[in-house]
Nucleic acid binder design. Sequence first.
DNA 1: CTCCCGATAT
DNA 2: ATATCAGGAG
Length: 218
Amino acid sequence: MASRQLTRPQIFEMFSRLAEANPAPRTELEYGNDYQLLVAVVLSAQATDVGVNKATRKLFETVKTPEQMVALGEEALKQHIKTIGLFNTKAKNVIALSEALVANHGGEVPRDRDTLTELPGVGRKTANVVMNTAFGEETFAVDTHIFRVGNRTGLAPGKNVLIVEKGLEKKVPQPFRRDAHHWLILHGRYVCKARKPECWRCVIEDICLFRDKTPAPT
DNA sequence: CTCCCGATAT
DNA sequence: ATATCAGGAG
């Protein structure tokens, strides 16, 4: 049985308010080109954007292409990203991914979700981020924040990320589809937080179906 | 399902 | 001390 969900007018109002509060939302990952964006997103799994940026700031000064990443090598890459969780598998994946880009894609980032997903360390969520942020597609990258916000608010409930993604595709209206996933992620990160949601300063508190509204601190 | 895994907030 | 962080692969 489907849990309670927001109505279509409520959803339009929800994004209207989020858009008013942040007219030009943007990823907080730092990057200089499509390839660096792809690498940053792979590194960001189960890690904070702040932590990833701290490591990539120096890495991306010298590594701007997959060729340069392959030349750097796995062990040197590990030294750059050792402060990020899961750094062993991430280093291996980034090198393998870079080798695949050089060997099969002319060193360019593919503009196709299925092709992106074939790359080592790139799953559906990472591919959706790249499609949206690099290529402007109306994709919904359901990460931990969007999964939580989608379920709490009643915007797009679902027991796994694919169900939530399909719900968003069906329910998010124009003109909000392009930037919806950015608004949701930022809302989840700074207001609708996992541990201590700050409902007292939430702009959609009256619409949201989340029951345990946190009282404002005294 | 488990494993991967450091930094930070609580 | 534990939960969480722009997940993916075996």
